[in-house]
């Protein structure tokens, strides 16, 4: 059924998400978690969003699955606008977009057997006999490298790594076009992490599913992603191919993140960047670049509003210095691409 559509699986335009909270004096406070982001995910690709906690990256996925309401913007899933769509009508479309949760133990009903959790997905939309459902469940579990008998246990009776495999198997039961992976490895041990990442890559190669990966682990993102968006305080600050981001990052925030991740490879162009201070939501209310209090290169002009600008090699960067005078922020033109002069 994929032949029919050549467009992107998912197209997001100017998405905004506000959270309204009340402070101690019961005054309304609006926190803008996602502030006008746009991107598209192509069939079979992995689009990753990276950033620190508080950047709003997890919120994006939850809005796309309509698990929480968006404030503004539009989202097209397989060409259909879904944000304005009533829940009842969207329910049928849910089979195309699924989610893998960070903590597999929280993602399964603690009282139900794993099998009954899987059965809910196997029976999506009705129309399958119980025997067909059973066969589909067993096959899905085998596909993630586990014996089907494991599904008769309860979530607390299997290990975290096994449960994450089962969570993946569960979401694949409805044959989605897009899988939102919300920190799929960060609750797992180091030695298990690789197993899950490799499994996800294998599944993508085999089934051609698109992934929207949200993670703060830059090693995992490096292995899985085709394109990467770097998010800071609700905005994308840099979007590019994986190699553009990892080897020739432009934005000081991207470079600071990579520096802090203690990666062995790949070798990166430009001087190392160390960010000071921490993420602060106060910055969202200011018009200029939100990184200024933490950025070693900040100057007066950074207080003007910053736009995502193309650099000539197909990427977008939200930093005037990185686009206009890269040398001034320690990028010595050692990268292979033109420095966007």
């Amino acid at each position: 059924m994929r032949e029919g559509m050549n467009g992107p699986v998912l197209e997001v335009g100017e998405l905004v998400k506000d959270y309204v909270t009340r402070d101690a004096k019961l005054r309304q406070r609006v926190a803008r978690a996602v502030d006008g982001i746009s991107f598209a995910v192509q069939p079979g690709e992995t689009f990753a969003i990276v950033g620190e906690s508080g950047s709003g990256k997890s919120t994006v996925g939850r809005v796309l699955l309509k698990l929480t309401d968006a404030t503004e913007g539009n989202v097209h899933l397989l060409g259909e606008e879904i944000l304005g769509m009533p829940e009842r009508r969207f329910r049928a479309l849910r089979r195309h977009i699924q989610m893998v949760f960070q903590d597999p133990l929280a993602a399964f009903d603690p009282r139900a057997t794993i099998r009954s959790s899987l059965r809910e997905f196997a029976g999506f939309g009705g129309g399958r006999s119980r025997a067909e459902q059973n066969r589909a469940i067993d096959q899905a579990i085998r596909d993630v490298g586990l014996p089907p008998e494991i599904s008769w246990r309860r979530p607390s009776q299997v290990s975290g790594g096994q449960l994450q495999r089962l969570s993946i198997a569960r979401s694949l039961l409805v044959k989605p076009q897009l899988l939102f992976l919300d920190e799929p490895t960060s609750s797992l041990d180091v030695s298990i992490r690789g197993q899950i990442v490799n499994l996800l890559v294998e599944i993508q190669d085999r089934e051609g599913i698109a992934y929207l990966l949200v993670a703060h682990d830059l090693r995992v993102v490096y292995v899985m992603a085709h394109r990467v968006a770097v998010m800071y305080l609700g905005q994308f600050v840099e979007i590019g191919t994986r190699d553009q981001i990892y080897e020739r990052a432009r934005h000081p925030y991207t470079r600071g993140l990579l520096e802090a991740a203690l990666l062995d490879e790949p070798a990166r162009a430009g001087d190392p960047v160390r960010l000071t201070g921490e993420i602060s939501e106060e910055q969202v209310r200011k018009p200029g670049c939100r990184l200024t209090p933490r950025c070693p290169f900040a100057e007066a002009r950074c207080d003007e509003p910053q736009q995502l600008r193309p650099t000539g090699d197909g990427r977008l960067v939200r930093c005037w210095k990185a686009v206009e005078v890269p040398v001034s922020i320690g990028l010595h033109g050692s990268g292979s691409s033109s420095e966007g002069r």
Binding site: S191, I192, G194, N198, V220, V223, D264, E265, P266
Partner: peptide
């Protein structure tokens, strides 16, 4: 598993 980043594949301890 922790330090080496391999393209397209991650080291996994079975």
């Amino acid at each position: 598993a922790f330090v080496t980043v391999d393209r397209g594949r991650m080291y996994a301890i079975p």
